[in-house]
Design a protein around this nucleic acid. Sequence first.
DNA 1: CCGTTTATTCACCACATGATGAATAAACGC
DNA 2: GCGTTTATTCATCATGTGGTGAATAAACGG
Lengths: 204, 204
Amino acid sequence: MSGSLQPLRRGRRSGGEDSRELILGTARRLFAEHGFDGTSLRQVAREAQVDPAMVHHFFKGKDELFALSVELPADPEQVLAGVETLDPGERAEAIIRAVLRLWEGPAQHGLVAFVRGTIGSTAKTALLREMVARTILSRVMAGVPGPAGEVRMRGDLVASQMVGLMLVRYVVRLDPLASATQDEVVRMVAPNVQRYLTGELDNP
Amino acid sequence: MSGSLQPLRRGRRSGGEDSRELILGTARRLFAEHGFDGTSLRQVAREAQVDPAMVHHFFKGKDELFALSVELPADPEQVLAGVETLDPGERAEAIIRAVLRLWEGPAQHGLVAFVRGTIGSTAKTALLREMVARTILSRVMAGVPGPAGEVRMRGDLVASQMVGLMLVRYVVRLDPLASATQDEVVRMVAPNVQRYLTGELDNP
DNA sequence: CCGTTTATTCACCACATGATGAATAAACGC
DNA sequence: GCGTTTATTCATCATGTGGTGAATAAACGG
């Protein structure tokens, strides 16, 4: 009766269950659901049914775990590859298709986590701004005719539509937009993006 | 020399500095900058140069402080008042004007805080979805002709553009969109919103 | 079969968080 | 002037956090 319940067996487990992957998977999910700050190592460990110290055993710390969790399988340059070679007058569809393909691939979890974590704080928002402005928009807007100031404005407008689309479709998941097919989305929003890219802005 | 530095004077301060408002203001700013989870009571107290216990003296807890901080000075119904009486064919401009007016008023801090706090977690996102779908979109789309399914889709598209606009202009602050005048914004994006509202969707 | 590596658990640390309750002092009402 | 209210500070709690170091046990390599 008074037998002390034996201390949980220490040491390596027998089964071949790969704890590292288990932790990574759980982290990926939790980071996507609650963002970086909203997710704790112990929470990850708990849900993965693993000792918190294991997380540190496999990963250097929370930062590394996050980095590996949201590791984007494709960098923006690759996703948008070829877009700048297209005629600006027909570029909208390609942009939208690329973005939809990216978000509907294996990167989705990571991207949602990235967005959630990024929008949550001013500092990270600044990073996002740099990234969007430099890496993405410069590529998307390459070759669009017009004065530099106007082209930058067009880029921001394109960004506003694309950001809104991703947020509503993948993060907030507003139906029926969230469950429309890729083709439908392209058909519906491409004309608007195209107007931002090369259409008449001042004269509705 | 060895005089112990006297313990900071306790008790009520002489000056008429209203600490309550000071705390509220600081909280409003910090919540907007770092979101709910990213802001701690002690941080607020520190920046307001006030003892952490004061925060609890004036407010029941973090939740109440947050609630009072992001208190929206105008509810959506009021902001969009009259929109549903307008001809759907000319409604886009009114919608955009209303949103811009709201975001550029005293509510801005609270709204940014709300967005940051809301996008950070799944649970709160669900709330946002309900709110947007029921309260806002139903009003904005009232009287728009067409089958129910199509009208809902049009609403989502409008939401995608408006959400993106708010995010890029007020949260991420992408320039030059962030520093454009209200009139410019209206001129540039109204046609796109109008197309979502009543334009031809399938046939670009 | 023995030594090394690796996986797992436990016992801690220092620290920040949200919160409470008592002590003190000024302001206020009478 | 005195009692009450209110503002302010301090000491303290329980909890959760990220992180470290050692102990243990299984797997692996020779």
